[in-house]
């Protein structure tokens, strides 16, 4: 519809995972100082919420930007399945070297979802707890 209006669809997903914040570039003392209790060698976990925003043309036949079943399936395959009930450090290759802070989790999820074929990925918001939220919309051009 050429009315100058833009529509975005937002959808929330959840996964629970453990992580440990520890950088191989820092000494043991520095790691403890920088990451505090998140540096506990045994790790700890969170219930993460991932909010995915996509945009596109609303198909007049369906009234939809993208079929939710397609979006849900894509997010399930790319994010929920590989992240849920996992140790992010051990089980997700991207976090072998990269510290799994929520900033980095946000960017990793964005990279995994940006190829969604049915709509344009606008941004990814990740809540680590109800009080910590991170958002990534790709790099500014």
């Amino acid at each position: 519809m050429k009315d100058g209006l833009k529509i975005e669809l937002g959808r929330r997903y959840r996964f629970s995972a453990s992580h440990r914040l520890h950088s191989s570039k820092l000494s043991e003392e520095e790691n403890r100082r920088v990451y505090g209790k998140c540096n506990n060698p045994y790790g700890h976990g969170h219930n993460y919420v991932v909010e995915v925003s996509v945009s596109g043309t609303v198909d007049p036949a369906t009234g939809m930007i993208a079929n939710l079943a397609d979006l849900d399936g894509f997010v399930e395959r790319e994010v929920t399945e590989p992240f849920d009930h996992k140790s992010l450090n051990e089980d997700v290759p991207a976090f072998r070297e990269n510290v799994p802070t929520t900033e980095n989790i946000c960017k990793e999820i964005y990279q995994r979802l940006k190829h969604f074929p049915m709509a344009k990925l606008e941004r990814v918001r990740v809540e680590e707890t109800g009080n910590n939220t991170f958002e990534y919309a790709g790099e500014e051009l």
């Binding site: 209006l5 833009k6 669809l9 937002g10 959808r11 929330r12 997903y13 925003s53 939710l68």
Partner: peptide, 17 residues
């Protein structure tokens, strides 16, 4: 305008740009 259909699903509408 943000319309939530459920707490996990919403649509945003705004002027382009």
């Amino acid at each position: 305008v943000r319309l939530y259909e459920t707490p996990d699903l919403y649509a945003d509408c705004f002027r382009n740009g």
